[in-house]
Amino acid sequence: MKVKWWHVALVICLAVAFLSPLASASPDGLEKVAEDHEFIGSAEEAPFQIIADYLFPGIENEALATILAGIIGTIVIFGMVYILARLLRLRKRQAE
């Protein structure tokens, strides 16, 4: 199989996900505003949790749990959008 540009690009995306444990843990823009103005408490917990807070459940090592969450998310989202675009393309060709 010939290596296409997007195979390389997907590896780059996975490498970015691999770096995710280096992310700043400081509150982000909206969280900071919510803390400063004391409405952070009104945030509600999600009714269910799958990979909450980008930590793969059941793994003690936090960096590893984050990397695993990042890799899974990156692959899932690539697959979802690639398939969506493929299907839209298919429908366009059928219409032509």
Binding site: L10, I12, V16, A85
Partner: peptide, 12 residues
Amino acid sequence: PLMGIMAAFIFA
């Protein structure tokens, strides 16, 4: 493929 890559990059 660019749409898929763009989404994957944005997520990561």
